[in-house]
């Protein structure tokens, strides 16, 4: 479903990605595990067509991102951690509808989808209220609903639980698991070992712009005879 080959990207004289290659199968969750500045966000931004790679190739759902970025974007949903990027002066419904419209959904489908998402994320109480006074957890739910309003095949999560409290983080975890159940392909970046262990089918450890190890949790722990945390520390250094 996702094929990344020889990805390179520099910002002026900083080499953010040196040679990143990995594949993700349909319905699989791949965790990109790395320190801050390792290249996780740059990789996800290239996958989401926001950045152009200097070299290498990315194919999502059979479409090369360099050739047809708009078609790729209709297949992906993306969620960032930290601030949820919700428009405070719009209602939760308007926020979600906006993304449905931009992803070329018709009005009837948007309405059905928003009602459905409102139910599954338990947002019925505040779906028609302006988002300005929402708690962080409520905003994150709106952001989640917004990212999948067009029912994308591929989900990209960039440290989605960063800055969230335990309850809100649990909502995100539940959501990522539901994506897998629905057969969606997920790439998920994090620097939290427990999160990666809990959610991912496979883990790619990224360090200084390179994938230095990739495999299932069992494969990696068996190979190194260490826990994921110990393995990570050994590979990237203290």
């Amino acid at each position: 479903m996702i094929n990344v080959k020889g990805l390179k990207k520099s910002f002026k004289d900083v080499e953010a990605l040196k040679d990143v290659s990995f594949n993700v199968n349909q319905g699989e969750i791949l965790g990109l595990l790395g320190e801050n500045g390792a290249g996780k966000t740059t990789t996800l931004r290239i996958l989401a067509t926001m950045l152009k790679a200097d070299d290498g190739e990315v194919v999502l759902g059979g479409i090369n991102v360099a050739n047809n970025p708009e078609a790729v974007r209709k297949k992906i949903g993306i969620l960032f951690g930290g601030e949820s990027g919700i428009y405070d002066r719009l209602t939760a419904r308007e926020n979600i509808e906006y993304y449905g419209q931009l992803n070329d959904m018709d009005s009837a489908s948007i309405k059905d989808r928003v009602d459905h998402l409102s139910r599954i994320f338990e947002m019925d109480e505040y779906i028609d209220r302006r988002a300005g006074k929402f708690s962080k957890g409520m905003k994150q739910k709106v952001a989640l609903a917004r990212s999948i309003v067009h029912n994308p095949e591929i989900m990209l999560f960039d440290e989605p639980t960063s800055g969230l409290d335990v309850t809100a983080a649990r909502v995100v975890h539940k959501f990522i698991n539901s994506c897998k159940e629905e057969g969606k392909t997920v790439v998920f970046s994090s620097h939290t070992m427990s999160e990666v262990e809990k959610l991912c089918d496979r883990v790619a450890i990224i360090h200084k712009g390179k994938i230095i190890e990739i495999g299932t949790i069992t494969e990696l722990t068996d190979k190194y005879q260490k826990s994921v945390e110990e393995l990570f520390v050994e590979l990237v250094g203290e």
């Binding site: 926001m50 708009e70 993306i78 990027g85 992803n103």
Partner: peptide
């Protein structure tokens, strides 16, 4: 500042 630009750029709109 409100981190809404990146999600917006990842939609189907050019």
């Amino acid at each position: 500042e409100r981190m809404s630009l990146e999600p917006l750029l990842s939609t189907g709109a050019s």
